[in-house]
Write a protein that binds this DNA or RNA. Structure first.
Lengths: 145, 145
DNA sequence: CTTGAAGCTATAGTGACTAGAGACATTAGG
DNA sequence: CCTAATGTCTCTAGTCACTATAGCTTCAAG
């Protein structure tokens, strides 16, 4: 049986994060020791590793919740899992597209900067006037990764 | 003079967002009409467009705050603005690198899926075991874009 | 003059944690 | 056995950049 700290080390997840996952129902409530400390078995360790790995791949917790409940019923069709993964792939691709446009615009902005005073700074100027941009670029996309 | 709604339309920013920017001190408190409604002039419109544009390029609000105060003192050196933009560029590049690794891993995962049952689903299997991954991939990076 | 849109304030919610306070549990060393 | 250090407990609040809601007032058009 693992204490929460050992579990965290084993899975590469911080202790408060584990408690958070329990709180939102992603991990079941574990046994407790005589002194009221959480005790975890191998199953919890696997489940947490699964969550951690899916988070690393950028899946949002809601998607992970679905994937976990799928993995609990092994005889079901795989299609649903496929859909979730494909959605995630699409989201990742979109982000890459946007970020690549941003990168180009930032590079343009910086290389054009004459390193003089603010008054003729290209960085400030471009920010002041979207018309000076070469491409479309709109970052606003929510969830980190 | 523009009401908050017109200003929002002009700059492509939602009304509550404008009030939020005022609240956190990014926009100055505007004049008010007899009936206590906000009234904005051309300066506020430009400032808001600047903010909007910088947000679109993924700058965090703190960086924008700095850029704004720089643009208020046109005789200063441009170096500080350059630093901020360069930091942003580095951050964007890092994100692209990570996301590209994610993309590869997700694609691998999905194409290997035999579309059968969960029991032999590659998606679930890979998520359960990081050892099955081809590359490093760690998404955890905070702030959207 | 009435109606409906737009504006006002204040508060709470989002996602996925992270940080802090103050108290109890456990373990290693002496 | 005692003590000190570390680990764990609960609870609350903070992060970022908004977004949503509720309940009110003001304004412009017909």
């Amino acid at each position: 049986m693992l204490t929460i700290g050992k579990l965290g080390q084993a899975a590469g997840v911080k202790v408060p994060t584990i408690r958070y996952y329990e709180q939102i129902g992603l991990l079941p409530e574990p046994e407790r020791s005589a002194g009221n400390q959480r005790l975890y078995g191998a199953k919890a360790r696997e489940r947490l590793a699964f969550i951690r790995h899916a988070r690393d791949l950028g899946f949002p917790l809601d998607a992970i919740r679905d994937l976990l409940s799928l993995s609990d019923s092994p005889s079901q069709s795989c299609a649903a899992a496929d859909v979730i993964a494909t959605q995630q792939l699409v989201a990742v691709k979109e982000r890459i597209t946007r970020l690549t446009a941003l990168q180009a615009e930032l590079e343009r902005m910086i290389t054009q900067c004459a390193k003089g005073t603010i008054a003729d700074c290209r960085v400030i100027e471009v920010l002041s006037d979207h018309g000076l941009c070469a491409q479309d670029h709109q970052a606003r996309t929510g969830q980190g990764v």
